[in-house]
Amino acid sequence: MITYAREDGLTAADYIACVGATSLGQGRPLANTDRIQAMLDNADLVVTARDADGSLLGLFRAVTDWHWVCYCIDLAVVEGQQGKHIGQTLLDTATALLGPKVSIVLLSKPNAEGFYRHIGMVEPMAAFMRPRTDRS
């Protein structure tokens, strides 16, 4: 049985173990525990998927105004657990917590675009980014 819930206080160690077991981990500063903890502490919404023994199977991390838009920063499901609807259920749980007036926006990794299309997300016409200069 998998439990999906909003989780305040997710630890950097749990995040690193989960995201590090996905292709998303390659783009995150997993060696910098303090930065990871700051990223978690400053997120507005973290939803987790945990199995019966408490192991973290996946997570959704976002910033939101709770009234118009939610920017999903991470949607990660550990290798070996993908294909079990965990990612979609994390998004569904976040959607329920946010309510029907809030859109969820995210940037997809190129190899994950098919997943988002498959679950019914739509592609915006344009996205722009000012890259960070510190990648540590």
Results as ranks from 00 to 15, higher is better:
G9K: 07
I36P: 00
Q37Y: 03
T3I: 10
M125Q: 12
P110I: 03
Y71R: 06
I86T: 09
K101W: 10
C72L: 13
F115A: 00
D65V: 11
T33V: 15
L97V: 09
A126C: 12
T22S: 08
M1P: 08
R6G: 02
D8L: 11
P124I: 13
L40G: 02
A96E: 14
T3M: 03
A43Y: 03
E7M: 09
V77N: 04
F128N: 09
R135E: 11
H118A: 15
G83M: 09
P29H: 01
M125H: 12
L59D: 04
A21L: 06
K109Y: 03
C18H: 04
A96K: 14
E7D: 06
M125G: 14
T11M: 01
R117M: 10
I16P: 08
L91T: 08
F115R: 05
D34M: 03
M121E: 00
G25S: 04
H85D: 13
C72Q: 04
G80M: 11
A126G: 09
L90S: 09
G25W: 04
G27R: 07
D134E: 14
L10S: 03
M129P: 00
R6D: 05
Q82M: 06
Q37A: 07
K84N: 13
P131E: 11
L57F: 08
T89N: 15
G80R: 10
I119P: 08
L40R: 07
I36L: 01
L56H: 05
D8M: 08
A49R: 04
G58L: 02
R28F: 03
S103Q: 15
G20W: 04
G54R: 06
L57V: 02
A43N: 04
Y116V: 09
T33L: 01
A52D: 12
E123G: 05
D74N: 08
F115D: 01
V46G: 01
L106E: 01
L40C: 03
Q26R: 13
H85S: 14
M121P: 05
Q82K: 14
L24Y: 13
T93K: 13
G20R: 03
